[in-house]
Amino acid sequence: MRYLAYILAQTGRNLKQTWSTQCMTLLTVSLSVLIFAFFFLIYTNMLAAGEKLGDELRLIVYLEDEIVPQMQDQLERKIRGFSDVEKVVYVSRKKAFDRLSKQLDKDKDVLDDLGPDFLPPSIEVYPAKNLHTLTQIKHFADFLATLPQATKVQYGHSWVERFAYFTKLLQIIMFLSGGLLILTTTFMVSYTIRLTIFARREELQILRMLGATDAYIKVPLLLEGVMQGFLGTGFGLLSLYFLFTWIRERFTGPGFLNLFEFSFFPLQILVLITGVSIIFCAGGSLTSMRKLLRL
């Protein structure tokens, strides 16, 4: 208990002696965490949105003409033989017409002159959940296009493609900002600890002469790094939370953002980011100690 009290007192002395640099480091760590966590948040939300879209994904195979039930079974077997699918639904011309007129509701009289046969029959394929990547979807669509009677396969190709590329871009930005986070936390904290050691060089020498143990000298410096990591990450994540809340409040209503359900990090992710950040800050602290403290 007494040991802890003295260690904390030493840490307090360190912070007091280099408080301006400590503040700068804290700000830098916070900003780095904020930048990284911001992109990470968008990325995880996009992944969730992607998964949701994947659940609703369906490929529509337009057919040249109506097909008999036997042919329908045969096609379904072929499709299931190529890839796992949730379900396959045959939509006849009449069924398609009924759906459209139901969708048009009050304006369905626009269909009066067209007659019930003007829409092509189709097969709606709902792929299994394991069909994730754009390449897999494309590959499956290519196969569907080769089915007998198939004239066209539609699945919002360009939209899915753009979404996949955007997610990829976010992934790259996330890794870059993650790298930035590692560099800033490690180097800034290392630099701050270095300054602390220089500022207290005389005192540390005296402590050594008085018989201070390694723990008495090193643990406060390590704690300083840990505190930088904890507080810096805390401020960064808190800022992100306020930013997130602000955006959600301001941009609610019809619009792009309403297509997805945006959510903040779960507790586990918050703990993980904080933990990793603390490890890097402590690493920076240890690096400086190893270089400058000869006990």
């Binding site: 007494r2 040991y3 003295y6 007192a9 005192e203 005296i206 402590l207 008085l210 018989g211 008495y216």
Partner: peptide
Amino acid sequence: SMAMEVAYRS
């Protein structure tokens, strides 16, 4: 007190 603190005196 520095000398006594390193020896963890109360």
